[in-house]
């Protein structure tokens, strides 16, 4: 078993134009910086990206938007990206906005082998248009389908060479369930260790879900909203 690849370029080498990708992260927290940079370098386009957010103008998925590599975004919130809003309002970019919990759960369903789930969010809104509705215990639920994604690209704090992953703080966010949902899952980690160096009880995503892993480099970890209080 060898899941370790040398770097981001090797990890994404078979991602071609037209592919559907999941990209982990919430805002700029826990995003796969190295793989995004490699996708920009490779210049693939017509991508469908499933990601909670679309980065900011000059970082994260924003870098791919600048190069017009994205055909369609499936996200819950895109408010931090002016270029995104411009492409969307001008019709250059297709977008499907879906509730954040629905996004997470559609990833989870894929990772758990469930074709669809009934969810509350969005009943009576445009999110529910054209979808099957069913009443359970007096409440109306919408049928939402599991995502079908060619690749999932996630970022973990630590991983071992067998693909077991551990996340740090709120950089966990969408990463675990996306890791479980990809047909091919690529994990970039800050620390790549040998099997046995992570306590099995502490593993968040077991390696069975991860196909390729590498230790990333030069993480910028940009902060979107730096909020602090003064020391007394």
């Amino acid at each position: 078993m060898n899941k370790v690849v040398a770097n981001a370029d090797e990890a994404i080498k078979d991602i071609n134009s037209g592919a559907t990708l999941m990209l982990g992260g919430f805002g700029l927290c826990g995003i796969p910086e190295n793989c995004i940079a490699a996708l920009v370098r490779k210049g693939v386009n017509n991508l469908t990206c499933i990601s909670n957010n679309a980065g900011v103008d000059d970082f994260g998925i924003g870098l791919m938007l600048q190069k017009k590599q994205v055909k369609k975004m499936i996200s819950s919130y895109v408010g931090e990206n002016a270029e995104f809003e411009r492409q969307l309002l001008s019709g250059e970019l297709e977008v499907e906005l879906i509730p954040q919990g629905t996004l997470a759960t559609r990833c989870m369903a894929a990772g758990y082998g469930m074709p669809a789930v009934y969810l509350l969010a969005g009943f009576g809104t445009e999110v529910a248009e054209g979808k099957e509705v069913r009443n359970f215990n007096g409440k109306n639920y919408i049928l939402e389908h599991a995502f079908d994604s060619d690749f999932a690209i996630v970022k973990a704090w630590k991983g071992d060479t067998m693909g077991n992953l551990v996340f740090k703080e709120t950089a966990r966010n969408f990463n675990p369930m996306m890791a479980m949902a990809g047909k091919i899952t690529i994990a970039e980690v800050e620390h790549l260790v040998k099997p046995g160096e992570i306590d099995p009880d502490h593993i968040h995503v077991p390696g069975i879900y991860v196909h390729r892993i590498f230790e990333g480099e030069n993480y910028e970890k940009r902060i979107e909203q730096r909020t602090v209080r003064k020391r007394n």
Partner: peptide, 24 residues
């Protein structure tokens, strides 16, 4: 800490008794 933010993307802290989990 860039890895510790709230839903408004603001840097925050944890407290004794805090718990962290995934979005699902």
């Amino acid at each position: 800490d860039p890895d510790l933010i709230n839903a408004g993307k603001q840097t925050v802290t944890t407290l004794p008794g805090s718990a962290i989990f995934d979005s699902a």
